[in-house]
Amino acid sequence: MDKSEKKTTTRRDFLFTTSYTVGAVGLGAVIWPLVDQMNPDKAQKALATTEVDISQIEPGKSITVLWRGKPVFLKRRTQEEILEARSVSLDELPHPEKDEERVKSGKDEWLVMLGVCTHLGCVPLSNKGDYKGWFCPCHGSHYDLSGRIRKGPAPKNMEIPKYEFVDANTIKIG
């Protein structure tokens, strides 16, 4: 290419560049609403909290409630189960988390977690599997008494949602 040719910037080049730039910004501004309309709407977001009465749950038993369309396990663990969950060395865990980090301190018997397998989203079965916790029938992930992944394709422990004790008998999830 000729050197003088390369250096010249014409009025037309400027018009092309600015037109393309403004066009691209305009196109993006039109596309974004079309993309974002697929995200959860206000009605979906409004279902963000659920209150659960836990007074009827005996030690060793668990209930499942629906929160944001997903099952949440509320398990009242026995002392033996808590001890067993805490006796595991962190080196043995694919996703190392202490049991203490997964419950509220002083409420150690209550395990509240999303009943959703972190592999591909199935609902694990309770009191099943090699670690006495949960077992996912879809692709064979085993979880322990703290809901931590021990064996199988799931990459992470079952998720702990944001929750709080409103009073002694009520848990608010979300």
Partner: peptide
């Protein structure tokens, strides 16, 4: 996945789309 669902799990918005 949340964007695909239009919710926090597979739900009515997922079905309609």
């Amino acid at each position: 996945t949340t964007w695909l669902w239009g919710a926090y799990s597979v739900d009515n918005p997922t079905l309609t789309r």
